[in-house]
Design a protein around this nucleic acid. Structure first.
Lengths: 202, 202
DNA sequence: AACGATTCGGAGTGATCACTCCGAATCGGA
DNA sequence: TCCGATTCGGAGTGATCACTCCGAATCGTT
C-alpha cells in the first residue's frame, strides 16, 4: 500500500536507501497539503519547496506530475476506504452510511483536490474493475449494502448511482463551498431522496 | 444584453464599426464552442483560429482571458434564463421545474464549461445581489416558487439549496458523464428528495 | 575509514500561454 | 472617390511550467 522496499519485481533488486524512502514520504505529504490548499494546478516546485527538497527529487520518485497527483489521490481514497471499513461494525447501518457520506462531503468542502480524486474514482466505475479508488468503491458498496438490508436506504439504487451522487455533492461542496447551512440542507434533500420509497410516480 | 453600439457612457461616443461588431460576435461564438469542447484551459489562440481571426482581435474585444470566459458564461446563463422564463407559462409547474433542472444537467453532461459557469453563478449567491447569472437565479427562483405553490416541491428549501443541487448535479454529469442511465437514476434520487415531505425524522 | 553505488539539488531546457505592439488593411463619412 | 479614424493580424515578449542533467552529497557495506 505504501512504498516498495525493493526496486524490481524480479526479487533480486537492491535495497532502497533510507533517505530515499524518507524523502518519498515527505514529498507525498507535501503534495497532499499543497494540492489541498492551491488545487491541482499548483506547480511541482511548490511541492518541492514545501517538502524541503529539490525538484529533481520529486521527479525521481514520481516521474510525472500526473503520477504525483495519482499517488495523492490513491492515498486519500485509501484513507477514506479505511474509515468506511471501520464503520462496518457500527450499530446503526443507516447512520453509518449517511454519516460517512456526509463526512466525505465535509472534507471536500475544505480540501481542494478531493472531489477531483473522487471524480477520477467515479470515472473508473464505467470502465472496468481495476484502477484508482477500487478499495473505496468496495468499502462504500459494503456500507451501502448493509444500509439497504436494514431498510435505511431504498433498494433500487446501486453503487454507481451512489458514487455519482457522492461526486456531485463533493464537487458542489468544493466549488460553492461557502455557506455550511446551505450545504447541509442540500445534502439533507439528497438523503431524503435516498430514504424515499422506490419512486411512487413515474 | 449583447454588444454596445456606442463606446462610452457619456453618450457622445463614436459609432462602432460594423466589422468590429461582426468579429466580436464571431469570437464569442468560437469561444463558446472551443471551451465547450476542450474546457476552460483551451488557449486564446485556439479561439482565434476557430473564429478566423488574429489573437490581437480577440484581446481587443475581451481584454483578458477571464473577461472572455465571463462573457461566454454570461451568454450561456442568460440563454438558460430565457428558457426558464418560457417555462413559466407551462401548465404543470412541477413538470416545468423538474424538466428545466434535468435539461440543465443534460447540457452539462456534454458541454464542458457549463458547470463551471453554474458554479460561478452559484458562488455569487453568498456574495450579494449583482454578478454573473443574476437573471438565471431570478428565473429559477420563479420556477421554484410556482412549483412549491403547486405542492410539487417541498416548501423548506430555498433558491440557494436548489442552486447548490443544480451545480452539484451538473458537475457530476460533466465529470462522471459516461452512463446516461446512471445519471438519470441519480437525478431521480435528488428529485425524490425535492418532492419529499419536509423531513419526517431529525 | 574508505569506497562504490545511489540519491540529491537546482540551474538549465524547451514548450506553452496570456498579452502587447505596430504596420497594414478596412471602414464609412465627405 | 478620397482620406482620416478605427480595427485587424500575427510576430514578438516575458513569465511560468514540467521535466532533464550532472556534479555534489549521502548512504550502506566491508
Amino acid at each position: 500500500m505504501t512504498a516498495p522496499r525493493r526496486a524490481s519485481a524480479t526479487g533480486g533488486g537492491r535495497p532502497v536507501r533510507a533517505d530515499a524512502l524518507r524523502n518519498r514520504a515527505r514529498v507525498l505529504e507535501a503534495a497532499e497539503a499543497v494540492f489541498a490548499e492551491h488545487g491541482t494546478t499548483a506547480s511541482t516546485e511548490q511541492v518541492a519547496r514545501r517538502a524541503g527538497v529539490g525538484v529533481g527529487t520529486v521527479f525521481r520518485h514520481f516521474p510525472t506530475k500526473e503520477a504525483l497527483l495519482e499517488a495523492v489521490f490513491v492515498a486519500r481514497l485509501d484513507r477514506l476506504a479505511t474509515e468506511a471499513d471501520a464503520l462496518m461494525s457500527a450499530e446503526d447501518p443507516g447512520a453509518a452510511f449517511f454519516g460517512f457520506f456526509a463526512r466525505v462531503v465535509d472534507h471536500a468542502a475544505t480540501k481542494n483536490a478531493l472531489s477531483a480524486a473522487l471524480a477520477e474514482a467515479g470515472v473508473d466505475v464505467r470502465a472496468s474493475t481495476a484502477g484508482t479508488g477500487r478499495e473505496l468503491r468496495r468499502a462504500l458498496g459494503a456500507l451501502l449494502g448493509r444500509a439497504q438490508e436494514a431498510g435505511a436506504v431504498r433498494s433500487d439504487v446501486g453503487l454507481p448511482e451512489i458514487l455519482t451522487l457522492l461526486v456531485g455533492a463533493s464537487q458542489a461542496a468544493e466549488h460553492v463551498g461557502g455557506d455550511a447551512g446551505v450545504r447541509a440542507r442540500a445534502l439533507a434533500v439528497v438523503f431524503d431522496g435516498l430514504r424515499a420509497a422506490p419512486d411512487p410516480s413515474p
